[in-house]
């Protein structure tokens, strides 16, 4: 029993420590796969780490004195929220904690008086507004299946959530797209929109603040993909496989679709996403009613 307890504490701690690193590799895979889809070689897998180490060593330029604190906050609160997940805590709390991380990034980008950064910040705000309801509804629909908001409970299920919540799973695709900042919803900081956005929400970060923001972004992606793994949590390996498939789907979508504007992002998530989840919950309820 004691060994089990130690494992219960040590394993999450290791996960938390390695989350940003894992995120870096996921970003590396992202770049490699995208390159292959465009019939290029692509950078090495550890390219994101080169980028971050390089950024850490650059001459420090900041846009305001609180920017570094906020950049660190983005990273640290993303990590906190992942830690809550790793320790099997409440899903709602995890989602609310991500909101602090988002707040840090948005405030950091809005508080410089830079037009591009402000534009990106506003769009990031709308992105947050788009995906937060979906995540909350996801947590609630998971509750309807398991009777608990705790991640621990999901990890101890003997059936996969996916069989009960297939539509909720689909609704997570736009969330993942928004969080990875991929087309068609890469409105806040597109990799392909130099002309209008420059670097969007990241414009005013440079050197170590950008490195911190990158780390935060990686952590957040790991968090989101971990949420996906919960849909097939026993055995977790299938969940991880599932997350990787979804990740691949997002990359394909990214390479196929052009960027849409923020209005269509908000409309899609608030209509299609929400409707998918509601349809799923109605289905769940009718299944219970039919059984009675």
């Amino acid at each position: 029993m004691a060994e089990n307890n130690i494992l219960n504490i040590v394993l999450p701690v290791i996960l938390v420590l390695f989350a940003p690193i894992l995120g870096g590799f996921i970003m590396g895979i992202d770049r490699k796969l995208t390159a292959r889809m465009q019939s290029r070689m692509g950078p090495p897998l550890i390219q994101p780490f080169y980028d971050v180490i390089k950024l850490w060593g650059k001459q420090p330029f900041i846009s305001s004195s609180i920017q570094p604190i906020l950049a660190f906050g983005y990273f640290a609160f993303s990590l906190t929220s992942f830690a809550l997940l790793a320790f099997g805590q409440d899903l709602l709390l995890i989602i609310f904690t991500v909101a602090i991380a988002d707040l840090c990034l948005i405030v950091a980008s809005l508080n410089s008086k830079s037009p591009y950064s402000v534009l990106g910040g506003k769009r990031e705000l709308i992105s947050m507004m788009s995906y937060e309801p979906i995540l909350l509804l996801m947590a609630i629909s998971i509750y309807y299946v398991t009777g608990s908001f705790m991640v621990q409970r999901i990890l101890s299920l003997n059936y996969p959530l996916l069989t009960y919540l297939p539509l909720v799973f689909l609704a997570l695709i736009p969330v993942l797209i928004i969080d990875l900042k991929k087309s068609p919803y890469d409105v806040s900081a597109s990799a392909h929109a130099h002309q209008e956005l420059v670097r969007g929400v990241f414009t005013e970060f440079s050197g170590y603040t950008l490195a911190l923001v990158e780390l935060g972004h990686w952590t957040k992606i790991v968090l989101m993909l971990s949420l996906v793994t919960l849909f097939w949590a026993t055995p977790i390996i299938i969940g991880i496989f599932l997350a990787l498939i979804l990740f691949f789907v997002v990359l394909v979508i990214d390479n196929v679709y052009p960027r849409l504007n923020w209005k269509s992002m908000l409309k899609t998530t608030w209509s299609v996403g929400v409707l998918l989840i509601i349809a799923n919950i109605v289905g769940l309820i009718s299944r219970v009613v039919m059984r009675i």
């Binding site: 950078p43 390089k54 670097r199 990241f202």
Partner: peptide, 21 residues
């Protein structure tokens, strides 16, 4: 472009002087 694929070497056209080397 893909033919020369500068990203192999980590080269990214960043467009923002604050982040460029």
């Amino acid at each position: 472009t893909p033919k020369f694929d500068a990203e192999r070497f980590g080269i990214v056209n960043i467009g923002d002087p604050k982040q460029a080397d």
